[in-house]
Simulated assay, not measured.
Amino acid sequence: MDVNKTVEILLVEDNDHDAEMALRSLKKNKISNKITRLKDGEEALEFLFGTGDFEGRSVHNQPRVILLDLKMPKVDGLEVLKAVRSNKDTENIPIVMLTSSKEERDVVEGYKLGVNSFIVKPVEFNSFMEAVKEIGFYWVILNELP
């Protein structure tokens, strides 16, 4: 992986099936070809801050949006969110939390930590594909970054 390539969407998802569906939807709808998928929160933090496996990556080349799973191994989505929001170089990156959790405490904590949007993953294939398409369209094409 070219660590300094332009990334518009950073997809952080440990479930291969969900990640594949999200990638297919984004590419099928021509939302972005500049997508990087990482499998856990630890990888996401290394990518965003140019450490570990991503040592030397320009931290000034940040994604336009992060699609972040909540429940992941190693470092969960809320921990990633907290780290991103507490760093001046990453604090303004829009973050959309994607999760299968409907627990109110997860939603409340996500918003307290500064998530931009909280989306419960639809279980049905076509609904999931449509949700990802709309998320990508809004955050990559319509949304204006600071």
Rank of each mutant, 00 (worst) to 15 (best):
K34P: 00
V108Q: 12
V80M: 09
I95Y: 06
K102A: 13
G114Y: 02
T90H: 01
V75F: 06
P73I: 05
V65F: 05
L98H: 09
I119D: 01
G77S: 11
K39D: 10
G114P: 07
R37L: 12
P73M: 10
Q62M: 09
S86I: 02
L67V: 04
K88C: 06
P73G: 07
S58T: 05
V107S: 06
M72Y: 09
T36K: 12
F118M: 06
T90K: 10
L38P: 02
D106I: 03
V115M: 10
N116D: 15
H60L: 13
L38S: 09
L68Y: 10
F49V: 08
L67F: 15
T99L: 04
G50Y: 10
D76G: 05
E104C: 01
R37Q: 14
R105A: 08
V65K: 04
G52V: 06
V84P: 00
N126H: 13
N61G: 01
T36Y: 02
L70K: 00
K88S: 14
G56R: 12
K102F: 05
G77C: 06
V123C: 01
S100V: 04
E79V: 08
E55F: 11
N61K: 15
Y111F: 15
G41I: 07
A83C: 07
K82W: 01
P122M: 13
S101K: 03
P94I: 12
K39S: 14
D89S: 13
I93K: 01
T90A: 02
R64W: 00
R64C: 07
D76L: 05
K112G: 00
V115L: 09
K102H: 11
N61E: 14
K34S: 13
R105C: 01
G114R: 03
I35N: 10
E91C: 06
T99F: 01
D76S: 04
P63W: 02
I95R: 04
V80T: 05
E42F: 12
H60N: 15
V108G: 03
K121M: 08
Q62I: 14
T51N: 06
L78R: 02
I35T: 05
N61I: 14
V108L: 11
M72T: 07
Y111H: 05
R37F: 04
H60D: 14
N92F: 11
P94F: 06
V107A: 10
E91Y: 13
D76K: 01
R85I: 12
I95V: 15
E124Q: 13
I93S: 09
I35V: 15
I66V: 15
S86L: 07
K74P: 00
K39T: 11
L48N: 08
G52C: 06
L70M: 11
L98T: 01
E109G: 00
R85P: 13
